[in-house]
């Protein structure tokens, strides 16, 4: 494997976004790119990451190799990379370590780290192709704000999606709160759009602790997409350049 990223920033942010949810996971490398799928310890949420080969310049992977990595250790190594550094990830055929090289843009500093790999026997889950009843795209920062505000009211949020908009409702000991985002197109700045497509109305409850955890990915994408169907896990997607993505799935709470 040899994969070079123009800026370490992307990889730093992806790892930062998932490291509190999953601790040890395999980065599955093959000729289509680097993928990761892992559940949290409670088996409530699942993270699915894809960094396509096109995300890297260049990308080369001759064989399928799983790189079993302790994300806490990887975070320690990635601290040494500046966001604008060129990052190269390298690994041998049957590796004991993964090699990470950080180069300053002005080429006068090269840092090289070897991170020990782990043998991780990870369950792989089949995620069914789902035609979601409702999908809602919104500014990622708005979603983060809503989740963190409502977490102060309650540990759960009910998300209701209709043609009129998407409503987040929390009921707690101190009182209730709700936030509605209505569909709109911002002609000046499409990053501010709220876009809803719906085949049938949806209402589901989710743990805000997990949702606020997913929002650690906010810096990766201007927009976030929520995909919902009644009685299936919510998908929260942060789309990245070159068809790469970071997706979180969250099992619903049993409603009232």
């Amino acid at each position: 494997l040899e994969a070079r990223l123009e800026a370490a920033d992307l990889f730093k942010k992806v790892v930062e976004a998932i490291k509190d949810l999953v601790q040890h996971c395999n980065f599955d490398c093959n000729d289509s790119g680097i993928a990761l799928q892992a559940m949290d310890n409670s088996h409530v949420a699942l993270v699915s990451m894809m960094l396509t080969a096109d995300t890297f310049t260049p990308f080369r992977c001759d064989r399928n190799i799983p790189l079993g990595i302790d994300l806490t250790s990887l975070t320690k190594v990635l601290r040494a990379a500046q966001s604008s550094d060129i990052l190269t990830i390298k690994s041998e055929d049957a590796p004991d370590v993964v090699n990470l090289v950080f180069e300053g843009k002005d080429q006068d500093r090269i840092s090289e780290y070897d991170l020990k790999l782990m043998d991780i026997d990870q369950e792989h889950l089949g995620i069914p192709d789902t035609e979601y009843a409702a999908t809602a795209s919104m500014p990622a920062a708005d979603f983060k704000r809503i989740c963190s505000d409502l977490l102060l009211i309650s540990e759960a949020v009910s998300i209701e999606c209709t043609k009129e908009g998407i409503t987040f409702k929390a009921e707690g000991d101190i009182g209730n709160g709700s936030v509605t985002l209505r569909q709109h197109s911002d002609l000046e700045n499409s990053d501010k759009n709220v876009d809803i497509s719906l085949t049938e109305p949806v209402a589901l409850s989710f743990s805000l602790k997990y949702l606020t955890g997913f929002c650690k990915a906010t810096g990766l994408s201007n927009q976030v997409r929520l995909c919902l169907s009644n009685d299936v896990p919510l998908m929260v997607e942060y789309a990245l350049a070159n068809n790469s993505y970071l997706r979180f799935y969250l099992a619903p709470k049993i409603g009232d």
Binding site: S42, H43, A156, P233, A251
Partner: peptide, 14 residues
């Protein structure tokens, strides 16, 4: 986690 479903109830092991 009261009232919380598991992701394993929806996605099957491959």
């Amino acid at each position: 986690l009261k009232g919380q479903k598991s992701i394993l109830g929806f996605f099957s092991k491959t």
